[in-house]
Amino acid sequence: MIVVLRNLDYAQIKEKLDKDDKIVVWSCNDCTKYCDLGGRKNLKALAEALEKDGFNVIRQELVGVSCQPPLIRERTKHKATKEIYKDATAVIVLACTDGFLKVQRVFRKKKVIQVGSSVGLGAYSKKGGMRLVVPLEETGLAPLVEGYTLEEVASKLKMKSGPVV
């Protein structure tokens, strides 16, 4: 699985939004969920926090995987969501780098906010959660069979781990 860490905290996300933005909060339900950044629970929590702070969230979108362009494009064509995406002005993406870039390409005329970045490959267990075992070269970390916790990696890379709110 792809290990995804966070670039932004909640306050930084809010700074990128305007009060009149029509916001879609978008989450991948695969790797990003296992990293406890995305998934149904974290998507809902972020959307509700924004609403509470007076932002106009018009949709919460949970996608099986965000790295598959046909799944993204389908949202712009399906009768149930077509109008929502036409109206939307901002999309907050909880996904890996690839998932974010693919959403950005489909919604190139909208404000698309990257919350997560890929840092390597991880191994997951219910007991131990996600651990980074094969880092990207750019991280400067060595591979580790035992893996690094996401907190350790975030601290080394000056990033953040876990849910936005």
Binding site: C67, L101, S118, V134, L136, P143
Partner: peptide, 18 residues
């Protein structure tokens, strides 16, 4: 062999484990 992690048209290289 693991070639890397895709990022749109780029391939982010991973470190090879011993």
């Amino acid at each position: 062999r693991t070639l890397g992690v895709p990022a749109m048209n780029e391939m982010l290289k991973v470190v090879t484990p011993e």
